[in-house]
Design a protein around this nucleic acid. Structure first.
Lengths: 230, 230
DNA sequence: CGGAACGCTGAGATCGCGGTAAGAATCACC
DNA sequence: GGTGATTCTTACCGCGATCTCAGCGTTCCG
């Protein structure tokens, strides 16, 4: 990946469902994080003790020690690693309990990986690690904080999906991303639908990227996916 | 964020409850302060000795050395860093004791972050530390001290909530703020309600900002939040 | 050369978000 | 305790964003 390689921040993913754990691990690796996993609360605490991560992704509902308890324990021990909690339900009590226990952010399943990485970046940034501002590749700049994207200085009027999609491409310049990868990154990690939404939105993006006759930068790699190449 | 970056004033947050510490640290960082924390009175004194903060946020009730004692000690040592005290109760004795011991301001939990930052800024300002006067963005000026806001010189008749909301936007110009962020910043750090108050007040604000047909400056970013952009 | 797989595009249909109005509840001030 | 201002809730509406689907062109095989 062009440019300076700063050491990848370590993320600890805690979830009792193996499928979720794997999906998140794979996706976060792709997004440039180093990842360790734990299957329950006790494992999580052990992992933190052994090697403190830069940030923790923590499921609420787990057998044994649940997520809220884990956070409470960590905070009680004076460990202030930022925590993003996950919950299958969007019930208010959980949310409140989590945040009050000391979690820093909260996400309701299912979610898109891009959503998660955005939050993790925000948490890291907030925790001093100057976790980068806008992303850029070629003549494209994407600034999630301001939700503004430009090509060669010209501002692109993008909708939410278009914006997220472009952001993913910009953060993986030159790399070919498959339909499935994009689906899980932008749409949601459980999306299994057989559709061509991605194609459609790649089309939308291209249209807006090439409005003034600029050369194509979002290329098709037939049978594999798409890649952003200057 | 465009413009001159003046070095962020350092805030020392002292509270025995880790959750409160976390919440305040997180929120104050977002509001542009540098933050250190301490879990009790002794830690607080040590932190002050090691690196004197520009202002201290101090819980009254703590095990060991309580807040009032901390202030008394500081003042006794001739250290006149401004102090804002927090208390769970609104009992008069505490308030009086705190102020008599040398605290500069007093806040009753729970409170909205905007309330706290307003007070901190007031303290910094009062303490000569050029803690900046009014905030401005585009043709909007917000002066928390006089509680006056203007657009292009025209004074806006804002209620308290409207004022706080506008203030938050002005202090984060260009940045997209989500419904959740605004809820916690303006309404309170414990607010969990699922409601559209924010939408309503954005509406109120716009109405008053555009009374004379001025162009829209408070923009909607669909699916994300709102942003103030000239 | 022909067929099949693949990707692209245009045209709706749907759905949810944000805007707004109106009234209820709450607060503040007298 | 009463009255007006402020804040919050609720409900509904309209529009934009997203998605589906079908048809077409292109590429890559046999």
């Amino acid at each position: 990946m062009g440019g300076v390689v700063r050491s990848e921040p370590l993320v600890l993913v805690v979830d009792d469902e193996a499928t979720v754990r794997q999906a998140l691990e794979r996706a976060l690796r792709l997004e440039g994080f180093a990842v360790t996993t734990a299957a329950d609360g006790l494992e999580a605490l052990a992992a933190v003790a052994q090697r403190p991560p830069a940030v923790i992704v923590l499921d609420v509902t787990m057998p044994g020690l649940d997520g809220v308890s884990v956070v409470r324990k960590l905070r009680g021990d004076g460990i202030d690693v930022p925590v993003c909690m996950l919950s299958a339900r969007d019930e208010v009590e959980d949310r409140v309990a989590g945040l009050q226990a000391g979690a820093d952010d909260y996400l309701v399943k299912p979610f898109a990986i891009a959503e998660l990485t955005a939050r993790l970046e925000a948490l890291l940034r907030r925790h001093g690690a100057e976790g980068a501002g806008p992303h850029m590749a070629g003549d494209i700049i994407v600034d999630p904080r301001r939700h503004v994207a430009t090509r060669a200085g010209r501002e692109l009027a993008l909708t939410r999906r278009e914006f997220d999609l472009l952001d993913v491409f910009v953060r993986h310049p030159g790399q070919v991303l498959s339909r499935d990868q994009l689906l899980s990154l932008v749409w949601g990690y459980t999306t299994d639908v057989e559709t061509n939404v991605v194609d459609v939105f790649v089309g939308y993006l291209r249209r807006k990227l090439e409005i003034e006759g600029e050369p194509r930068i979002l290329h098709t790699v037939r049978g594999v996916g798409w890649a952003l190449r200057p």
